[in-house]
Structure formats: structure tokens, C-alpha cells
Amino acid sequence: MTDVAVSISHMNKYYGGFHALKDVNLEVEKGERIVVCGPSGSGKSTLIRCINRLEEHQEGSINVLGTELNDDVANIDIIRREVGMVFQHFNLFPHLTVLENCTLAPMLARKISQADAEKSAMMFLERVRIPEQAEKFPGELSGGQQQRVAIARALCMKPEILLFDEPTSALDPEMISEVLDVMVGLASDGMTMICVTHEMGFARQVADRVIFMDHGEIVEEAAPGQFFEAPKNERTKEFLRQILSH
């Protein structure tokens, strides 16, 4: 057993005739924080959705925590239990309370008793700083609060890896920082994180590596210092110019 969390090699994905991901190679070590960025439609969301099989890849291999992601149903179950995901639109279950949102999966997929599940759920809700909202329904919370609940919900499964799919881009500006604070906290605790985001400040602060994608390819891959100060590729430069111009 190595300390490799995710290993993707020569992976290709097609939507019908459209070549969405082109020969992607990526290796993520345990405890590493990766930020993926790139223009919309560049395949960055598709890439991380392949890691927990929300999308199916056609060629190449994806290995998560030593388990090969293939046609085997049991492997998919194992990987999904170990990989948490936070979505752009939170995707909380509106018919369940905040607490129920957090305890449902541990009870059903990890077979943890209700008491234990609730205890750990409260712990994580405290960690995202909204334990007082536990009995409310998602619809009664603000966007920032909902996203923090979504992070707590993912944490309750005690995952090895957390995927973030543009977690702040559906939020009002004043709510972005409360979510980013939680993410920075997680990063400092050593969680393995792969984040698709346009928050360049966050990338500078916590990322070990920044990956730039365009047209379904990984164009550039570098430590944040080098990535922001001295990008090599023309497309990266162009993208950074646009995103940092104001």
C-alpha cells in the first residue's frame, strides 16, 4: 500500500462523439491539496466526477486508494464510501433536516448506529460552525450555511478524499468566505482535497499543486507560486489574465 490517493493514467472520456477528456494523467498523494481550474467547458468538473464514478470513463485507468475503478459494482461502492463530494448547488436533501442529511449515509452505507451517527454529525456541524441549525430544513438556511452543511454531510462519512465541484460559485459574494474558511480549516487538518474552483486566493493559500485544464486536456501543472508567477503555457497566461484582470 503506497500513499497514493488517486492515480489516473491515460484516461479518455467521450460523450457520444464529443471527446470530453483527452489522455489525462494525474497522480494525487494522500494529504495533498490540488486545485483544478480552467475555462468553463474545459472538462474539470467531468474529471473529478469520474473519480467517484458519477461519470464513466471509456479508456485508461483510475485507481482510488488502491481500488481500481472499473465495471465491478463492489469497487464502485467502496470508492464512493471513501470519497466525499461537495457540489456547486449543495444538493442537500430538502425533505430531511440538517441532522438527518448528515446521518443518513453513515447509517445506511456504513451501518453505524443512529446514536453514533448523530454524535459524529453534531461534531462535524460544530466544525463547520452551525450546530444550532441541526433541526432546521435546508430550505430555511442561507446558501453559505447550506454549503457548510453539505461539507459536514460529506465529512460524516469520514472519507479519505474530498472532491469539491465549484463549491462557491453559486454563492453570494458575502457568503463565499465563510465556506472558504471551512475549506482552509480542512486543508490544515491534512485532508486530501481535489477542488475545482476559481478562487485563486484559496489556491495560492492552500494548494500544493494547481492544475490548469483546457479543451479536456491538462495543459499545465505546477506549484501555486510558479503557476501564478511564471506560467509556461500561452493558454494559461491568457486564462490568468482574464481571471485576475479585475
Partner: peptide, 23 residues
């Protein structure tokens, strides 16, 4: 239902029947 509901349930590791009956 928004597609995200099913996806979130999948990402949490719930099985087909758990997703269907609970979510």
C-alpha cells in the same frame, strides 16, 4: 427533481434502493 439529488446520494455511497426509497 434536480439531477443533483440523485448525484449527491450516489456520491454519499447510497445504493440504488437506498437512493430510491430515502431520497
Amino acid at each position: 427533481l434536480p439531477k443533483g439529488q440523485e448525484e449527491a446520494a450516489k456520491a454519499l455511497g447510497l445504493s440504488y434502493w437506498q437512493r430510491t426509497t430515502r431520497i
